[in-house]
Design a protein around this nucleic acid. Structure first.
Lengths: 208, 208
DNA sequence: CAAAATTAATCAAACGATTGATTAATTTGC
DNA sequence: GCAAATTAATCAATCGTTTGATTAATTTTG
């Protein structure tokens, strides 16, 4: 028999994140979180003050880990294209390794309410955006990339990944496909990276 | 003085769609819908049976209009590339003319609950997907398109549009930008269409 | 055509259930 | 033995829904 001597605080966070991802913030009750985590309801307010406090804590932790993983790829002595390819690889891997959270983040981003969260998410994402922006702009300036609509290219890169996270069935025509299956997930990751690298290579570097 | 002799049923639908888009399904109460529409609360259940009935009705109406607009572009005697460009133009115009609804649809798609809705949305979208799939596959078969990962290309096209709808601030760096401003919206539409047409042209037809 | 009967639309009020939050008492671990 | 952790019980507020009554419009009937 396992001791199950787990930190209640952590158990609440994990259960809440799972439930928020599955049924949304409003669609999840504190009683569900308590039941799922094995903690008493009052513990939620004891540790986090409120239901929203739990949500904010989840977002803060995730976004912190998010930013810390931001590599300073720009300093490396490699071509703009290779920089971009590395960013794509890192970005795809990170997002497809945390699909549930990214679904939740995306959902929250599309809501008008909770502007505090909206801004927080926006700021976190804009860091990645600026990184990609600098790489592509740099490539254009040194003549290795074509003149393109940089912001639109970024929208295509990020949009592709988000689209696959939210609607993987679109990409995988086979019915018995599951993003939670590690084998399937690995395959989707590789395919997404290969596609985006190929797409950017052709679009940005083809002489025309 | 305007007569305001509006259909209460319709008023409920419009108010509900607005609220669902802004604050989500769970985040919207029937009392809000009643207040916003000027109808009595009981009218919601009188006309639609339940809160979910309102939601289902909104989705059904939208999806019906969605499908009816599906042109049979495949029959035209034009190149695969031109077919694709027309589909992109139509798709961008439709989605960017109904941004609030598409946000809602997208949000609902990312929830595990309400599988009935999930399937309905999925089916509606897969129609568009199959159309694009046939066009690209046809272009590959007749040799005018490169060999590409068709599903991934579709994910990029659709993902780009969705990304712009949900996070337009990403594309527009200028701060005083509003998707509800017709002038700004027109500009975003044209820019999105131009980008996607350019991207697909280069990626699909460049000899390499 | 006019009175009677029926239907549709609307309303205020209340329903039981559930929500997030809090209390006060109890247990745990050092 | 004391502070931190945990509990059951309870709070007011709000949820979606239902009710019974009322008004307005339509149909039926003589």
């Amino acid at each position: 028999m396992k001791t199950e001597k787990v930190d209640k605080r952590q158990a609440i966070l994990e259960a809440a994140e799972k439930l928020f991802c599955e049924t949304g913030y409003e669609g999840t009750s504190t009683r569900q979180i308590a039941r799922e985590s094995g903690a008493n309801m009052a513990m939620i307010n004891y540790y986090f003050g409120s239901k929203e406090g739990v949500f904010v804590e989840i977002m803060n932790e995730r976004i912190a880990g998010f930013a810390s993983q931001l590599k300073i790829i720009n300093e490396d002595k490699i071509s703009a294209l290779e920089k971009l390819h590395r960013v794509i690889e890192g970005y795809v891997n990170r997002i497809l390794s945390n699909t549930a959270f990214h679904k939740m983040m995306h959902r929250e981003l599309s809501l008008t309410q909770r502007p505090e969260m909206y801004d927080k998410i926006k700021d976190a994402m804009s860091q990645n955006m600026q990184l990609i922006d600098r790489i592509i702009t740099g490539g254009i300036e040194d003549g290795s990339f074509n003149q393109v609509d940089v912001r639109m290219v970024i929208a295509s890169i990020m949009g592709t990944i988000t689209n696959i996270v939210i609607a993987p069935h679109k990409v995988m025509s086979c019915s018995n496909f599951d993003l939670n299956n590690p084998k399937d997930k690995k395959m989707i990751k590789e395919r997404t990276i290969a596609h985006l690298q190929d797409l950017t290579t052709v679009y940005l570097t083809t002489k025309r």
